[in-house]
Every structure is written in C-alpha cells, then in structure tokens.
Write a protein that binds this DNA or RNA. Structure first.
Lengths: 217, 217
DNA sequence: CAAGAATGCGAGCGACCACTCGTGTTTGTC
DNA sequence: GACAAACACGAGTGGTCGCTCGCATTCTTG
C-alpha cells in the first residue's frame, strides 16, 4: 500500500476559516485558563466561541489538536521572547541587571498569556503538549546554563545544571505568586523574585568579580 | 421538617471494615499519585485495592470523600510534623540551623507521603480538598510569619506576609525538584533549596544581628 | 444457633463528553 | 448564474465514569 494517508495536503482555507480558527483558539485559551485542559469540554469551547461543536471539528481533528495549535503559537512567541531575554550577554554585566531584565521579560510574557502557565502546568495534559513543554524547558535550561557558565567557566557541569534547574523552579514559584496578585502587590512580588534570584546567584558569581553587595530598597 | 438527615451517626464498623478502609485509602493514594485526582476512576481504585466498586461505596459516599479522608489523615500527620518543624524558636538561633531543620522535616514528610504533593497541587481538585489545603496553607503562612516576626519585630505586616508567601513558594519549587531526583542528586537539591532560603532571608534577618556570612561548602 | 447488621459483589443506570454525520448555507471560480 | 468547495449546524453515537441496587456472604450478639 504505497498510499500515504498521513500526508494530507492542508485543505484550502478561506479568510472566514482563518478567522474562526483564531476565534476558537481564543475561546479555548479562555476555557483552558479557567477550567484546565481535561475539564474543558470541546462543547464549552465551541459555545464560548459562539459556534456549534461541528464547526469546531471542521478545523481541529480532536481536542488535543486545539491545545497543540495553541501551544505551538504560544511557543513561537515564547521563543522570540526568550531569544531576547536569555541571549548570551557580556559576563561583565552586573548580575542585578541581567536577572532583572530576564525576569521582567518573562513576567511580561506570562502576564500577557496566562494560558501558557495553565497549559504547561496541568498534570493532566496529553503527551504532545508535554513534549513541547519539555523541549522548551530543555532549551531554557541550556540557555540558563550557558549564561551561568559565562559567569562560572570552571564550575562542574552537574552543578551548573542543578543551579539552572533551581533558577527555573524559583522563577515558576515566583510567577505563580505574581499571577496571583495585581497592581502594587504584584510589583512587590516581582521585586521579591528578583531578590531571591540575585541573592541565590550572587555568592556563586559574585565571588569571581567582587560585585558590590545588594542594598535593599 | 425537623428531621436532620445530615447527622447520620457513624455506623458501627467491624475490624474488617477498618482494614478495607485502610486498604482502599492506600490504593487511592497510589492511583492519585500516578494519574491525579480527576483521571483516577473509582473503579480503578477498587481494582487496585482488590475489591469491587460496590465495596468501595460501602465505605465512602463518593469519590470526593475518598480524597477528603486521605487528605484529613495526611493533614493530621502534617500538623504533627510542622508542629515540631515550625514551633516558635529562640530568635538567637542561627538562620542556617532554623531553615535547615525546618526544610529537613518537611522534605522527609513529603518524601514519605508523595500523595500529599499530588493531592495538593492538582488544578482539578474538588472544593473541599482545596479548602483543607488553603487552611493548611494559611496555618503554615502564619507560622512562618510568626517566626519571621521574631527575627524582624519591626517589619511591616504586609512585608512579612509577602516574605512568608515567598518562602512557601520557594519551598514548593524546591520540593518538586527534590521529588524528581533520587539519591545523591536529591541531597544536592535539598542543600540547594536550603541555600536559596538562607541567602534570601539572610539580608533580612542578618542585618539585625550581624551573623557570619554564609560560606560555601 | 438464629437473627440482624456489616461486608462484599458486579451488572447496570444515568450523565457527560469527545466526536460524527446528514443537511443546509456561504464563498470562490468560470 | 452554475457548480464545487469550504463553512456551519446540532441532534445523535459510542464510550467512560461515578455511582446504585439487589442479592450473597460473613461477622456479632444474645
């Protein structure tokens, strides 16, 4: 059977279809945010988008595909964001500045796209999304490791990896608190997160260059 | 209608029944751990326990009650644990010692009872468990605040609350990494978590007493 | 040893959900 | 305008899951 059924050429879409897709993804983002992936019913997504269940399945083969497409689009934007936020930097950059800039960019992204957090942290999420998340996670980790190694060229790789994991974990913990507050309190938590990271990393990287110790605001 | 239907006196249980309950809770813990709460089917729990679905419902009115009972028992043990781990201490105790002891106890508890983490972090968990979790969370927070205030009697309450939230969040982040590793690597992460907390808190509490700065191992 | 309560079973019920299908409507193309 | 393809609909289908019910078995009690 030489027929290749998996390679269906993308069916021609009209402008209306593209609009529907965007509409459905937006609705899905909203529903995923409030109820999580598994609890989100496709009917609820369709209803939120103001279309019928059948219409939803005109554009997505199944529920997972919705999350995947949403994840892909977010991931794309994310890569642009961390491309800027975690680019290799001059090792002479003060730690405060490097951490502050990276945190600000990531926090801004996550505040703009709360679905991202919801989609990447559900314990009930299908395999494909987890794969994407793991891939992103790995990329972020290697970027952080790269940055760390420019500060700490002589550290054992295992330690670098561990510290990178820790940084990402600390960021996620801070993000959760930040997303849980608004306004001035949110800003205060952002600052607190920066302090955590800076104070954690300072003894590691500061020993090499003897940066000035942090002064509290 | 003067009848009070909610107050059914607890039906008499035989030893066999108590054993079954323990068996079912253990099975539930196992299933919740591997699949999470919502994805765990009551039939799967019954199967894991080696009994029929009907037997399960002989002892629990519904699925939520299983999680609640499990949560209650864990919560009870937890309170004993943090009763020791977060008891008010002499403000003169070195920060390293206080943080190290508290972290060790909580980590030990969480490693002994992985369900606890699974049950308290699913985004899909029913209201009652969330309430319990919130209650525990609040208690832990006020304990931490209490400890902090003994170090920082003059700090504004809002700052104290924020720092306490941060500490708990950092702990949870560390816990996730710790549970994800074993053996020596796990121990390394435990130490890393302690370092994070100590370095975070040191500038706050250290300023008052001028403790020796941390030396890396 | 009864008699009643507690325990145990498992087919099956009702609800919900992902997904389909037959049919009707809109849009692009000649 | 004619034809086909894309779009839209929503009742319906199959499957899963929480939970029930009638009945069999084991324990406690007098």
């Amino acid at each position: 059977m030489p027929e290749n059924q998996e390679k269906e050429q993308p069916r021609r879409r009209q402008a209306r279809g593209e609009r529907r897709i965007a509409q459905l993804l937006e609705a899905a983002a909203s529903v995923f945010c409030t109820t999580g992936y598994t609890a989100a019913s496709t009917n609820a997504i369709a209803r939120e988008a103001g279309v019928s269940p059948g219409t939803l399945y005109q554009f997505f083969p199944n529920k997972e595909a919705i999350a995947i497409e949403l994840g892909d689009r977010l991931m794309h934007q994310m890569r642009e964001t961390y491309g800027e936020a975690l680019a290799p930097i001059d090792p002479a950059t003060p730690l405060e500045e490097a951490v502050g800039a990276a945190v600000d960019r990531f926090i801004a992204f996550n505040c703009d796209h709360p679905v991202f957090f919801a989609l990447m942290h559900g314990p009930d999420i299908p395999g494909r999304i987890t794969e994407e998340h793991d891939a992103l996670h790995a990329t972020l980790l290697s970027r952080i490791e790269g940055l760390l190694s420019s500060f700490l060229p002589e550290a054992p790789p295992a330690d670098l990896t561990r510290v990178a994991h820790m940084c990402l974990g600390l960021y996620k913990a801070g993000l959760e608190l930040i997303l849980g507050h608004e306004g001035a309190e949110r800003e205060a938590y952002v600052q607190e997160l920066k302090d955590v990271l800076i104070r954690y990393l300072e003894p590691l990287v500061g020993d090499r260059l003897g940066h000035a110790r942090g002064s509290l605001g």
